[in-house]
């Protein structure tokens, strides 16, 4: 199967076959990462720009490493922006970067739809590293890769996503990706952090649950979202301690879930707020394997976007 896509803007418009292809390709690249020499020539001569309009450590490092493992040439650009008034427009910046003969742009931007906007006129491929509250496809893909490694399948599995669903692009991309692959999704969080008509999201919709213990009772995995302390909107929840009391995952709470339940977190964690210390470091947690898989998934996405088919020699 060929990927045949210029851009990766989100998972909503990907077929389950395409998602499977990415995950299969990522499995192949993961093997490369365990070698002593962790580099393949697959994207030699391909130039990739990492353009970050929002601060990021993990995603950015992960993309950069993925690019270097594939032997691509890499340039980085980062700029905090909160208003269009300040300086050059997004369009001009990206057209300038493209004029330097860049093949792929990996971008994170605080505005939902910024990548869609750029894709209207950019010839370079665009890979979405997060747009506003809309989508974060590679995060969802690495979450799914981590789950598939342990499950072998998504059929009849249930994932419960916990926390600030309203502002979360991670939640949205996970919902689309997981439901397309046949998993069921429950979302749980305070009603102030639930977006309108959230139950309709994904293929066949999701279950909405406000009681945390009930929400995880049948969960094969839970994905705990980061509470954004910097948001400080006093209307979302009254205090950190109340949040932890009601929606935080402690060892005691986790007992309500099946023993085999996998614990995920996209990071960075607020230990003691949405996730207890003992859970973050516990046996059920796969938080660091998620990070490892992040590199493999991004290698797969970049490789497929660049038009690659996995041949034996790409892996050598």
């Amino acid at each position: 199967m060929q990927f045949n896509r210029k851009d990766l803007l989100g998972l909503e418009d990907l077929s389950s076959e395409s998602i499977k292809l990415i995950l299969d390709t990522a499995d192949n690249f993961k093997e490369v990462l365990s070698r002593k020499i962790k580099k393949v020539p697959a994207l030699r001569g391909v130039t990739i720009a990492n353009v970050f309009y929002e601060p990021s450590t993990r995603t950015r490092m992960s993309f950069e490493l993925a690019e270097k493992r594939l032997s691509a040439d890499v340039i980085n650009f980062s700029k905090a922006t909160s208003s269009v008034k300040k300086g050059e427009t997004l369009r001009d910046t990206l057209e300038n970067i493209q004029a330097m003969k860049v093949d792929i742009v990996v971008m994170r931007h605080g505005s939902s739809g910024a990548h869609k906007f750029l894709s209207e006129f950019l010839e370079a491929s665009i890979v979405n590293a997060g747009d506003g509250q809309h989508a974060h496809p590679t995060q969802a893909l690495l979450d799914m890769m981590t789950l598939r490694e342990r499950w072998g399948t998504f059929t009849s599995k249930r994932v419960t996503i916990i926390g600030d669903i309203l502002h979360s692009r991670v939640a949205r991309s996970n919902i689309w990706g997981l439901t397309k692959m046949g998993a069921k999704v429950t979302v749980c969080g305070p009603p102030t952090m639930m977006p309108a008509a959230v139950e309709k999201l994904g293929v066949g919709g999701v279950k909405v649950e406000y009681d945390l213990r009930r929400a995880i009772r049948e969960a094969d995995a839970i994905n705990i979202l980061r509470i954004q302390l910097e948001r400080q909107d006093a209307t979302l929840f009254p205090s950190m301690r109340e949040y932890f009391e009601v929606f935080g995952i402690s060892n005691d709470v986790l007992k309500s879930a099946p023993e085999h339940c996998i614990v995920m977190h996209p990071g960075p964690m607020n230990r003691g707020v949405e996730i207890a210390q003992e859970v973050a470091d516990g046996k059920q947690a796969v938080i660091l394997p998620q990070v490892t898989n992040g590199v493999a998934v991004r290698m797969a996405v970049l490789f497929l976007i660049a038009g690659g088919k996995v041949e034996e020699n790409d892996l050598q």
């Binding site: 909503e12 939902s112 739809g113 509250q133 809309h134 949205r172 977006p195 999201l201």
Partner: peptide
């Protein structure tokens, strides 16, 4: 507008 569409698109909605 606040609706399924705003949820899907990740655009802040007003009811």
């Amino acid at each position: 507008n606040e609706s399924y569409s705003s949820t899907r698109l990740g655009l802040k909605g007003t009811p």
